[in-house]
Design a protein around this nucleic acid. Structure first.
Lengths: 253, 253
DNA sequence: GGTCTTTTCTGACGCAGATCAATAATTATC
DNA sequence: GATAATTATTGATCTGCGTCAGAAAAGACC
């Protein structure tokens, strides 16, 4: 299946797709000219869906593309020298996966689907080339990477300084923010990851995650039904996380 | 003091400076043409030294430059909503500080000198512009940012999964690697940060850092004299960190 | 050189969260 | 839809590391 074929087949929906997908972060904020949007669209390859548990790429494989999540969720993780999995991130629709592979030309993590997931593949060499011709695209790329760096640093603060309650609250509010940003409900959503995966990510035991969630439920901070989460008391949750008056900046995981 | 003046004053030493400083990471691996090196040099401003405790920039200030450390050490940190300092990184000579400011056009962290420190200021707009003209420079920039992302993710693993011994061992070996990479001794170096700062960074109490270091000393893994550290038993230290056969990749903090 | 301040070290103690264990609830498989 | 496998919950116990406290050492400042 050639790229142009792929492109033409999806062409009619591309513009609307890009509105709230991968490229919203990459191009929309900078109002690319129509012509530029087209050029960007042309290098993007829509891939067939990944089923739950399938790999998008594996740690150690040659890096050649970054991927934008269109629907579903991915986790990235690496395997420590003791053979345990360490999750380094969850990726929701519109987010870019794989940026950490640029440096070594090899993915330093594996990426796996947590549910049925579709992605757009963006061959990095093409993207880089195109970014030379479209300065605002290049700038957006720098911004996306810079944002990732500061988000990861917030995550380091979380892991280093926060207790179990604060970690879980931060995690839930962070997800809430990410859903909200792309037009979904901020208060009510479904966790695509297991309690075990949350614990792994937050540096907590499964049992602790489960206990904290139960406790939050009992204190009427949230309402839980399996993987369905409803955040009931935002102010109290934010107090837990330590959000000052400026809610925006701090709660990024 | 104009930029060109600054430039001409230091001109004779520039090439050799760049060999093992900031730009080694940025340009040397890609063998820029002489002409390109010159163009890069021209946008770089050597700043006068910072004394211990002075700020390079503060959280919230407008972002306009990234900085390459020439000598000395910096720490970056942010102030949590509870008023405590959280250190997010230490920066040794040749490393770039400030990349996390690109996204929001504001530094999300403060940077402070741990000792007398000199830096090269690289106005980001100039760098970005120049990177359009020199593709290999742009690629290096992407690489540096990508590397930062994967390093930070290793740090997340450390904070989330490792115990006190493993954290301190990782920290020391990471410093060792960084010194080695720029031609200093890998086994013997001076810590420019206090035990408190190490603990803050690693998510440990000062007392714990002190105890671990004492214990390492007693077990003949390292030799300590105040801030002077000598790593005596590399194999055993690496075993602690969980380095497999491939030492290179894992021990980046 | 002497005083003051900060940093480092060491011990005693307590607690948050890990681990172990067993049951209950979901989800996957045929 | 029955059975197996995975995931979630809950309780009991244990422990690594934080906290508190005090002394020693190292720097800073006049």
């Amino acid at each position: 299946m050639s790229m142009t074929h792929t492109h033409s087949r999806f062409n009619s929906t591309l513009t609307s797709q890009c509105q709230n997908c991968s490229l919203s972060a990459l191009c929309l904020p900078i109002a690319l000219a129509d012509e530029d949007i087209n050029r960007l669209d042309q290098i993007i390859e829509r891939k067939k869906p990944l089923k739950k548990g399938e790999f998008l790429f594996r740690q150690g494989e040659a890096f050649d593309s970054v991927y934008a999540v269109r629907s579903g969720t991915l986790k990235t993780f690496n395997i420590t020298s003791f053979g345990e999995e360490q999750i380094t991130g969850f990726y929701c629709p519109s987010e870019l996966v794989g940026l950490s592979g640029i440096d070594s030309n090899t993915y330093p993590v594996s990426a796996k689907a947590l549910e049925t997931t579709t992605v757009c593949e963006i061959p990095f060499s093409h993207l880089e080339e195109l970014s030379s011709q479209i300065p605002s695209l290049k700038h957006q790329l720098f911004k996306v990477m810079s944002r990732k760096i500061s988000d990861d640093q917030q995550m380091m603060v979380l892991l280093g300084k926060k207790n179990a309650d604060e970690k879980v609250a931060s995690f839930l509010l962070n997800l809430s923010n990410r859903f909200k940003k792309r037009g979904y409900s901020a208060s009510s959503f479904r966790l695509s990851m297991s309690r075990g995966e949350i614990g792994n990510y937050l540096g907590l035991a499964v049992e602790t995650v489960s206990r904290v969630i139960t406790r939050f439920q009992k204190s009427e901070l949230i309402h839980v039904d399996g993987k369905e989460i409803e955040i009931v008391d935002f102010p109290e949750m934010q107090k837990l996380v330590g959000v000052a008056s400026d809610c925006g900046k701090i709660s990024h995981i």
